[in-house]
């Protein structure tokens, strides 16, 4: 039985994709994101956020956007999550294990209410929209070579702008975080 279903997954990856390979990372993504929002311990929240980044990357790969999935893992897990961790360690070294956070004036009830209202509006549009009823078309893939040609062709202006933006952000972050020598 298991053997049969695994065989179909090897013969027809698209079918397997529709059943398992998307739903499992999606479930992990939901749980990890919920934990990241709910947990009081900052480090735990960040680790759950990292897990949700990983699940999102796997979801991208499962949807056929292999390159974006790997970029997501490289940038978010390798850089953004580590930056957040570093900021936490730099800003509260005095309480290592007990870095619990306070709640703002709006409180958990207000935040949850706003979240639910937004979710309700979005889902309402979603379930009435005809576009959302689309079923999965045939297998799709985004070859690296084509992404490269597109980046160097139609999107070269955007690529240069992003390059300038990243350089400016790097220099800006370094200047901002630099020790003030005068004071």
């Amino acid at each position: 039985m298991i053997c049969e279903s695994l065989k179909t997954c090897f013969d027809d990856p698209g079918k397997f994709l529709g059943e398992w390979f998307v739903l499992l990372p999606a479930l992990v993504l939901l749980l990890a994101a919920a934990a990241a929002v709910v947990l009081r311990n900052l480090i735990h929240a960040t680790l759950c956020l990292t897990l949700s980044f990983i699940a999102l990357g796997i979801l991208f790969i499962a949807l056929g956007a292999e390159f974006v999935g790997f970029v997501q893992l490289l940038v978010y897990v390798g850089a953004v999550a580590m930056l957040i961790v570093f900021a936490i360690l730099l800003t509260r070294p005095e309480r290592l294990a007990k870095s619990d956070t306070a709640l703002s004036g709006l409180g958990p009830a207000g935040g949850a209410l706003a979240g639910f209202v937004t979710l309700g509006v979005l889902l309402g549009f979603l379930f009435t929209s005809p576009i959302a009823k689309k079923s999965l078309p045939g297998p799709a893939s985004a070859p690296v070579a084509e992404i490269g040609h597109a980046l160097m062709g139609d999107y070269k202006a955007a690529l240069i702008v992003v390059g300038v933006l990243l350089t400016a952000a790097l220099v800006g972050a370094a200047v901002l975080a630099m020790e003030d020598k005068n004071s």
């Binding site: 994101a33 990241a36 956070t101 306070a102 207000g110 979240g115 937004t118 979005l122 979603l126 009823k133």
Partner: peptide, 27 residues
């Protein structure tokens, strides 16, 4: 269908919004 993924994305967005509005910690 596309609905599942869009619903997932909507829930994720709502989580993010709730976190921003209910927490006072900048991180």
């Amino acid at each position: 269908t596309l609905q599942i993924l869009l619903a997932l994305s909507a829930i994720l967005f709502a989580f993010g919004l709730a976190a921003i509005l209910s927490r006072s910690n900048a991180i």
